[in-house]
Design a binder for these strands. Structure first.
Length: 274
DNA sequence: CGAACCTCCTGCGGGC
DNA sequence: TGCCCGCAGGAGGTTC
């Protein structure tokens, strides 16, 4: 489900409710996510939930210097939402953290591609094996036309696959890859190394713009994504190509096309993108 | 190293 | 209506 804007939206929604929150109770209803849920989770009763931040599509909860961190990934179908502790659990509500502020944070993930790990104190969570080798954040200065150009130099693969490679830049998933390439006027199947520096610069700008706008709109709700507080994201109506095969391009009227690239559906305008 | 392919899992919508 | 098939917002793994 979630790409960077949806994870960022979730992060902000949770952060707004964390002031002086402490974990009262940990409920683990299923352990078998992408990796087994850390057994140490159960011991976190009474531990403070100081802050939450995002790195790539991961959420990192700071439990304070004595307790380490929670590392959460929403996978394809995961979500984190607040509920009241008395509300009935839904199918696929796998983990719940009852907080001292009266709310309960629930991890819901039908496909169980997500992750919910406890990282012990002492180490920098960014050095965790899952995070250590990630590329730059797309909205940071470290991601630039130069870094993208360096990554593309040796790659014959389609540019869409390259911008979805988390070692090149993080957070760009299947929706926003198509959207960013439309904004840059580049066909998704173009070989990465065939692209000129100015075109890659436009692509960097396209990635930044589409992600920023999607965050401002609260993310994209395709079927079931909701913010931590239950609100949907409104970026779906701003999508220019994703999911629009057979419909007219919003810029030029040509029929939007769809093909499979690297096992994922890909959308583009044959006239606006060359 | 990179490219092409597969895998995990459940739910849903389309076609018959 | 019911059943089967293909597809879905991610990402790690294998093989060549």
């Amino acid at each position: 489900m979630p790409e960077l804007p949806e994870v960022e939206t979730t992060c902000r929604g949770i952060a707004a409710h964390l002031a002086r929150a402490t974990i009262r109770e940990v409920i683990v209803r299923r352990h078998d996510l992408r990796q087994a849920v850390s057994p140490a989770l159960a011991a976190l009763t009474g531990v403070p939930l100081l802050a939450v931040r995002r790195r790539a599509k991961y959420l990192l909860f700071d439990l304070g210097p004595r307790h380490g961190h929670l590392l959460v990934h929403l996978g394809m179908s995961g979500s984190l939402r607040f509920a009241h502790p008395a509300d009935a659990f839904k199918t696929h509500d796998h983990i719940a953290l009852t907080l001292s502020n009266g709310q309960q944070l629930r991890f819901h993930d039908p496909r169980r591609f997500g992750l919910f790990l406890h990282l012990p104190p002492g180490a920098d969570p960014l050095d965790h094996p899952l995070l250590r080798r990630l590329g730059p954040e797309p909205l940071s200065e470290e991601f630039s036309a130069d870094t993208l150009r360096a990554a593309c130099r040796s790659r014959t693969a389609a540019i869409k696959l390259v911008i979805m490679d988390a070692k090149v830049v993080v957070g760009v998933g299947n929706i926003y890859a198509s959207e960013a390439l439309f904004r840059a006027g580049i066909r998704p199947a173009t070989s990465a190394r065939a692209l000129s520096a100015p075109r890659l610069a436009r692509l960097v700008a396209g990635i930044r713009a589409v992600l920023s706008e999607a965050i401002a709109a609260g993310g994209t709700t395709l079927r079931d994504f909701l913010h931590a507080d239950g609100e949907p994201g409104y970026f779906r109506q701003e999508l220019l190509v994703y999911g629009r095969a057979g419909q007219p391009c919003r810029k030029c009227g040509a029929v939007i096309r769809q093909a499979v690239l690297g096992q994922r559906s890909t959308f583009w305008c044959p006239r606006c993108q060359r």
